[in-house]
Nucleic acid binder design. Sequence first.
DNA 1: TCGCAAATGAAGCCTAGGCTACACTTTTGT
DNA 2: ACAAAAGTGTAGCCTAGGCTTCATTTGCGA
Lengths: 149, 149
Amino acid sequence: MQQPPPQDSDSGAQADRFNQARTAKAMTLLEDYTEMIDDLVQAHGEARITEIAHLMGVTHPTAAKAVARLKREGLAVSRPYRGVFLTEAGSAMAASVRARHRIVVDVLLALGVPAEAAETDAEGMEHHVSEATLAAFEAFLRRKDQSAP
Amino acid sequence: MQQPPPQDSDSGAQADRFNQARTAKAMTLLEDYTEMIDDLVQAHGEARITEIAHLMGVTHPTAAKAVARLKREGLAVSRPYRGVFLTEAGSAMAASVRARHRIVVDVLLALGVPAEAAETDAEGMEHHVSEATLAAFEAFLRRKDQSAP
DNA sequence: TCGCAAATGAAGCCTAGGCTACACTTTTGT
DNA sequence: ACAAAAGTGTAGCCTAGGCTTCATTTGCGA
């Protein structure tokens, strides 16, 4: 799932990178909404469309469309005029997204990025952090903690 | 250009971050293509649609549409059935994009990310690296160089 | 309890960025 | 010199993800 088959020439490697970036970009909506819904359910017991929309900075029809997509993908469930909830798959995604987000922010902070910028940039960067990179980030943070306990 | 006006409540901060991530996402196409065209012009004296498409991993009509957008935005010029070239604005963007890309890759490598993953992830992450974060990255790399010359 | 405000849903429009199919130049090899 | 091949352009279709507008449902307060 990480190395697609090598192409004809060397230019394939370059193309593969862009294709992976495009794939990651397509996942961002799913990831952002599942995390948001998980937050809201933990905070209020349910996630309402209007609140999701407000926090995401979009209009409610946009949020509703996103939730419809989550439902299509089996990540969320909801009944008309009722709150939205995550399925098990959705919760799992939310958990890993949140963990990854925290690690990315921590790495940025450790590198000396100002807190506000770290939060903002992490929001976009996190979706492009592969397993390999995430593992390296975790190892880096562990080293940091050891050297400065 | 970095801090939009504060919203009503605190939820505005969250929404602002997502909005910035969306803006950055919208810039990725422009940035990727200008850098690619710059590479090709430096290598071959011109950038051909077919080669751009091949390297970007898309079909040529898609590349042609992207180039049309670059022209609309004043970043590139071209005449029918001839190569594509960057304007001064396009060259400037390519230069800063390339510089940022190199820094992001270097930071990932310095953190212990494997080379292949660093290249791939940087391709997506770089577009979300703000000026503040970039500055912190550069400072971090300078420190690294000093401690291990 | 019942009426109105707030929340949700539904429909339709727009742009970006993919694609295929087909038409037309340009280039190239014989 | 010209025909085939390669490269470009054009048209049209699709999905995602924004938006506005309008209809419907909830639920709360008078």
